[in-house]
């Protein structure tokens, strides 16, 4: 290949990558301008500029309460999943026990199990317990859903912690708890932070499973948005989406600054 050919090849590759990025970002590029549209319906390109759809979010109380529900469920289920996830990860990394591989596989199933089947199953299970249309039922379901994410990031981080660091701490006079508190936990922190962020986003965003468990008086934000868009297709939905986009972007940026997000996918 001569230099000109290589140059053409490079250009083609750049154009290709750009095209893919554009394709991935296109929905976002459309939704944001729509939020500031002055039209009464969702049409692209938007005409005029207005902030009234953001005003509408605040005016309609159901969005506020759905937002609070979603935020609370995301926080509580993440907190529970983190405690269970870290402890399970430690057990998987430090101990050999019968059924270890099977259990690990079982814990990971929510990642691959069809959400619609899982949702129906959870609804059938929670109904006789009286946990249908209850915040606690929903929190429980979300905990199960996000648990694998926490477990995975904890496992990845724990595997990177050299066993001799435990042993060094022991020989220096630190007991098990002190070793965990002063050596292991600080080293786990970046991984846990990343796992927690993903969990918060996934729980907040969850639709399919939640659909089976919500009802009058208990709505999550994604479902409230869906309900709203069934009756009125105005840019309010685009405005909410924009708000969520901003919140998520800030969270991702913070994580990236703190720990480097790329590491969590390798």
């Amino acid at each position: 290949m001569n230099p000109t050919q290589i140059l053409t090849g490079e250009r083609a590759l750049k154009a290709y990558v750009l095209l893919i990025l554009l394709f991935l970002a296109l929905p976002i590029l459309i939704v944001v301008p729509l939020a500031f549209s002055n039209d009464v319906s969702l049409t692209f390109p938007p005409h005029g500029f207005s902030l009234r759809w953001f005003g509408n979010i605040l005016a309609r109380r159901e969005f506020g309460s759905a937002f609070l529900n979603s935020a609370m469920i995301a926080c509580i289920s993440t907190a529970i999943a983190m405690v269970i996830g870290i402890l399970s990860a430690i057990a998987f990394v430090r101990f050999q026990f019968p059924g270890r591989e099977t259990l690990l596989l079982l814990f990971m199933t929510p990642l691959i199990f069809p959400a619609i089947v899982f949702g129906a199953a959870v609804a059938l299970m929670l109904s006789p317990l009286g946990l249908l249309r209850s915040v606690w039922g929903l929190t429980l379901a979300h905990t199960v859903l996000i648990f694998p994410y926490i477990l995975r990031t904890s496992l990845a981080t724990l595997f990177e912690i050299d066993k001799s660091l435990h042993e060094a701490a022991y020989t220096l006079g630190a007991n098990r708890w002190q070793t965990f508190r002063y050596v292991i936990l600080p080293l786990l922190r970046p991984g846990l932070l990343a796992g927690a962020t993903f969990s918060l986003i996934i729980s907040f965003d969850e639709f399919t499973v939640s659909m089976f468990l919500v009802g009058p008086g208990l709505m999550t934000l994604p479902l409230e948005m869906y309900n709203y868009s069934e009756f009125s297709l105005d840019p309010t939905i685009a405005a909410i989406s924009t708000v969520l986009l901003v919140i998520t972007s800030i969270a991702i940026l913070i994580i990236e600054k703190l720990v480097g997000l790329g590491k969590q996918f390798s």
Binding site: D162, S164, L165, E167, A168, A169, Y170, T171, L172, G173, A174, N175, Q178, V183
Partner: peptide, 16 residues
């Protein structure tokens, strides 16, 4: 081990 009053240097040093 934490009750033995030891000092130990590991092959990979195991610095925190």
């Amino acid at each position: 081990p934490w009750k033995r009053n030891l000092g130990m240097v590991f092959q990979n040093y195991a610095l925190f």
